[in-house]
């Protein structure tokens, strides 16, 4: 379990604190979505999770290890993997497979084990064919997948993703989001997913909304992400499904609220049409 407890933090160069008594808990195997406007402190918060930044006040513990304990930092970084916003700036290997081997290599794993980990991670991400490629020849989506393989290869218990769909085209974006979900479901890796777009985190176990360096509210995606007014007040858009249903309701159509995905919204609308159509369960056209 990662516990962020009333953390306050300010960058040296900026006057106002980037985090003000922010608290967040991520349980093992949990998928937590973190959403907020630009500059609200999302990135600062996740950098606290693996001791890249240390709290000025409050504390961050990872499975009981305090990030301010220098002796624990190496272990904390083993447990909490991190995927940064710009994949270009986190690939350090001269080839794809060398980059994926960087993290586990730092752990001092023997070469055969390293080879096994790298091959497994590349296969899990579906880029085994890229093993020998040079990083600058990859597309944005491929670079993102390489960075994810590099994190998986260290076998972390949690992974923090900072806007993993940034710089990606729709197909690559879908692929990356599906991959993150499968890491959570199939491997039981705890996920912190920082997003701009509420659509990306509708399937999370829990969603936290950040505003001005603090957690404004948290709860199930259905409770948090259907609050269109609150999201709009923070400069964020509700998921399209919520937007459609709310607009229909504003137009006087009596559909039920609470849909998060377009599939659910369509089902709600269909159910409504059936209920008002003559003859009740008439076939849709």
């Amino acid at each position: 379990m990662i516990v962020v407890d009333r953390v306050t933090f300010a960058y040296e160069t900026a006057g106002a604190p980037a985090l003000r008594e922010a608290s967040l808990t991520i349980r093992e195997g949990e998928y937590v979505g973190l959403i907020g406007a630009n500059g609200c402190g999302k990135t600062t918060l996740i950098r606290q999770l693996n001791a890249l930044l240390l709290p000025a006040e409050g504390s961050v513990t990872v499975d009981g290890l305090d990030t301010r304990d220098r002796a624990a930092v190496a272990e904390i970084r083993r447990r909490v993997g991190m995927s940064f916003q710009n994949p270009e700036h986190q690939i350090v290997g001269m080839t794809v497979e060398e980059d994926v081997a960087f993290g586990p290599g730092n752990m001092g794993l023997p070469t055969p084990e390293l080879r096994r980990r790298v091959d497994e991670a590349l296969a899990a991400v579906g880029i085994a064919a890229l093993a020998g490629r040079l990083p600058h020849t990859l597309s944005g989506g491929e670079k993102r997948l390489v960075t994810i393989a590099g994190v998986i290869a260290t076998d972390p218990r949690y992974i923090a993703f900072d806007e993993p769909s940034a710089y990606l085209d729709p197909a690559a974006r879908r692929r990356v989001l599906a991959l993150i979900r499968s890491l959570n479901r199939e491997r039981g890796i705890g996920i912190v997913h920082v997003a701009h777009d509420a659509r990306e985190i509708v399937h999370a176990d829990r969603v936290a909304v950040m505003e001005a360096g603090a957690i404004r509210c948290e709860g199930s995606p259905r409770d948090v992400l259907t609050d269109r007014e609150m999201l709009r007040g923070l400069g964020l858009d509700a998921p399209p499904a919520v937007e459609i249903i709310e607009r229909l309701r504003e137009a006087g159509v009596g559909v039920k609220g609470g849909a998060l995905t377009l599939k659910e919204a369509a089902a709600e609308v269909a159910a409504h049409i059936r209920s008002v159509a003559p003859g009740g369960g008439a076939e849709e056209r």
């Binding site: 190496a74 993997g81 350090v92 290599g105 730092n106 752990m107 794993l109 390293l114 590099g150 260290t154």
Partner: peptide
């Protein structure tokens, strides 16, 4: 740093 580098000797492929 996040990937566990601290100047220690590491293994390679």
């Amino acid at each position: 740093e996040a990937r566990g580098y601290a100047g220690q000797p590491a293994t390679t492929l």
